[in-house]
Simulated scan of single mutants.
Amino acid sequence: MTYLIDAWLDRPHPYLRILHRETGEVCAILEEEALDELRDQGDLDLAGLTSSEPLILKELVRSLFLFCYARALRPHNEIQLH
């Protein structure tokens, strides 16, 4: 499977979505609170988001999925996984 990252980080209510490349299906959504947590942890790599290197993007998507699943396991999660 291949994925696309749709990130809107420079808006009042930023979000980042991971989309299935072939179907356009939304696989995960990170909204403002989750993005703030990633930034606070130093795990949001803005340079990686603008990279065209497949290995960098693959690692970024993997890290974002892991973060999403870890947050989904917490009580009162606010992240959506599809």
Rank of each mutant, 00 (worst) to 15 (best):
P14L: 05
H20R: 14
T23N: 04
D45A: 02
H13D: 12
K58S: 14
R17D: 12
L4A: 08
L64H: 01
Y69L: 07
P75Y: 03
E37G: 02
A7S: 14
L73D: 05
L73K: 09
P12Q: 05
R39N: 09
Q80L: 11
V61R: 06
L38I: 05
A72M: 06
C27L: 15
Y69P: 00
P14R: 06
H13E: 14
A72K: 13
E59L: 12
Y69E: 09
L19A: 10
P12Y: 03
C27I: 15
H76A: 09
F67L: 05
R21K: 14
L35E: 01
D40Q: 15
K58I: 03
Y3G: 00
S63I: 00
G48P: 07
R74I: 03
S63C: 10
E22K: 12
D45F: 06
G42D: 09
C27E: 10
L4P: 01
L60W: 01
A7W: 03
E37R: 15
V26K: 08
Q41D: 12
S52I: 11
G48D: 08
L19R: 10
Q41I: 07
I79Y: 03
A28Q: 03
L9Q: 10
R62K: 14
P14Q: 07
D45S: 13
L73T: 01
V26C: 13
C68Y: 00
M1V: 12
S63Y: 01
A47W: 08
D40C: 06
T23Y: 06
D43G: 06
I56A: 14
R62F: 12
L81S: 05
L19G: 09
L46H: 09
Q80D: 11
Y69K: 08
E78P: 01
I56C: 10
V61M: 02
A72L: 11
H20M: 08
L60S: 02
N77D: 09
H76T: 07
R17F: 07
E59V: 09
R71A: 05
R39Q: 12
L81G: 03
G42R: 09
K58R: 15
A34T: 06
E33L: 04
E32V: 03
Y3E: 09
T2N: 14
A28N: 01
L30E: 00
E22L: 11
R71F: 00
A7I: 07
E53L: 13
L35I: 10
E33R: 04
C27T: 10
L66T: 07
F67N: 01
H20F: 08
E25S: 11
S63Q: 15
Q41V: 06
I79C: 10
E32F: 03
